[in-house]
Design a binder for these strands. Sequence first.
DNA 1: CGTCCCGATGTAAACGTTTTCATCCCTTCG
DNA 2: CGAAGGGATGAAAACGTTTACATCGGGACG
Lengths: 358, 358
Amino acid sequence: MSVTIRDVARLAGVSVATVSRVLNASAPVREATRARVLEVAKQLRFSPNTAARTLSRQRAGALGVILPDLYGEFFSELLRGIDQEAQRANHSLLVSSSHHDSRGIGAAVRAMRGRVDGLMVMAPDVEAPLLADVLPHGVPTVLLNGPSVDADVHEITVDNFGGARAMTRHLLSIGHARIGFIAGAACNHEARERERGHHAALREAGVAIDPTLEVRGDFSEDGGWRGARELLARVPQPSVIFAANDAMAVGALSALREAGIAVPGDVAVAGFDDIPVARFLNPPLTTVRVGIAALGERAASLLLSALAERSPPGAAPRRAVLPAELVIRDSCGAPSGGSSRLPTRSASRARSTTLRNR
Amino acid sequence: MSVTIRDVARLAGVSVATVSRVLNASAPVREATRARVLEVAKQLRFSPNTAARTLSRQRAGALGVILPDLYGEFFSELLRGIDQEAQRANHSLLVSSSHHDSRGIGAAVRAMRGRVDGLMVMAPDVEAPLLADVLPHGVPTVLLNGPSVDADVHEITVDNFGGARAMTRHLLSIGHARIGFIAGAACNHEARERERGHHAALREAGVAIDPTLEVRGDFSEDGGWRGARELLARVPQPSVIFAANDAMAVGALSALREAGIAVPGDVAVAGFDDIPVARFLNPPLTTVRVGIAALGERAASLLLSALAERSPPGAAPRRAVLPAELVIRDSCGAPSGGSSRLPTRSASRARSTTLRNR
DNA sequence: CGTCCCGATGTAAACGTTTTCATCCCTTCG
DNA sequence: CGAAGGGATGAAAACGTTTACATCGGGACG
């Protein structure tokens, strides 16, 4: 069927071992032999069968990524970061998405068994114990933005709590008293953290938490659109709508536009994530920068280094928290001083939770 | 190290063959034996090593995807469609991105050898002969939106020419005489097709092609921003800016806003792709719907069916062209009759190139 | 009652690599 | 001049599956 190392060996008049040695530079080979083997290999367009190599080497040179979804810029950015780092380290990437429950994740994990050396799992809406149950034993795993799992699993998250708190503080500081909040799904861990941060800032400022100013979305544009419509019906209207992610902020902006409400003149808007399109919106979106691609990169690099160390089973898993920083643009009505096209204008007030590794 | 089929066999008191038969339901096994094996397998948390299985079965149950990039909503939508279809057919997905030249693609192709049963390659900026050179022999391949390659390769594309022509016709029909065009990179096949469509519509309408009304972008928001700035400097100003993709249209909208120009009042804007965020923009973007996720789905399903047939080497490769249809929203100033939030409002005039399979 | 077939199982040979071990020969040093 | 070492190679054993082939009962049918 397909050309194997045996064919190369035969045509070059050497043993398969020698061919392997030439191709992997794993042992000295006489120059003349080397040249002959390479010549034949090239001519035959030989490329080693990865499955066989994986089996023999007991490592696949590939990483697995399991995501809850693949819709919107967030995931493409994340994947981009992961891919970049993986490629740097000469690793392939297996991607599997649309896994919301632990059953689905379990299936994806099994499908990857033996294909990958390590796993990155993002499962914000699965409860920790359920998740721990389906994660594989013996395969190094990095959990992204999930609830803390009590297993031998590395974890990397964004400071969702701190970011949301910083945003609400900022909104209060520029005079917004009534903040409408569009939360994410109740079962989503990230959404809950952001909600918590928002509440913390309100409490700290002595502002009463008004349940009528909070509606629940689902991190989608449509959810944001619906949430904004609901909030606009309140009397008195909120002076700003803080959406728990940028996609919902996009939906909110759209709803406000349809209702003929000026942003930020009549009602301001803020988001969370700083997806790439945020700065190009109309008006440019004030949001919390997460550094999505960087998060992906860090996750991959964390996994790769865990792999490299061949960490003993007893070694403590690593945790890292990436800072989330405020990005003030036009949509919140803060004096931002000039054109908003500059890439970032991070408020130094953002609680810059530095990376902590333990 | 890890638990193998041998361990299961030993504990269940049967041979490995029986275990394999139970797990794959590939031959009748006595019910009692079956139950015992299943019990042991579950208890041991056994899951078969995919590399070994791949080697033995001579098929991986995985598809490879090679993309030029992973930035923006276009690719995440595409990947979403592919993933969905692959998952439906119980296949894993290998993704490799950031491959702009044939060398990079060749490397990615080699990395996938033996890991995947088939390949989907998107390489709009690689010339056909170079591409044909690095595509693998003997691995079924689907080329997405690329130039037609003279090799044993299936192809699926969007009707870029027809879509762009329909848009320009539409813009002319609603009274836009001076159409500013932000093209894509000259080396990008899709960009060239769209440019060709635009020109064809102009010629058909007897409108002279004015080179000062065409600038070159790169399919990025920033490129669109710069392109729009350039076009705004022309005297007289164009009455509409047609960006060759939505990302550039987003950038153009942003530039217009900064310049204090009303859209569509002073200058209208149109895009191409209908990325998900397009209908939520301010104003909602008139564009050409490509059905990105559907494209991905179709590509995967094309590949899967080619795989299923175990097509003989002589079989003619399949080609499919997906229609691109006009979506009129507010940004172009056409009377669109009401709120633009309805998911689609496709002009029936869109040349609905139906799928043609041969 | 013998033969044939089929259901249930085991044995062992693939699959295509890498890698250990062994072999051979040549150099170098005592 | 002999022994030791090392460079270049080959043979063969892994790696963990699937599967062709063989074996062995037992029931049906002549």
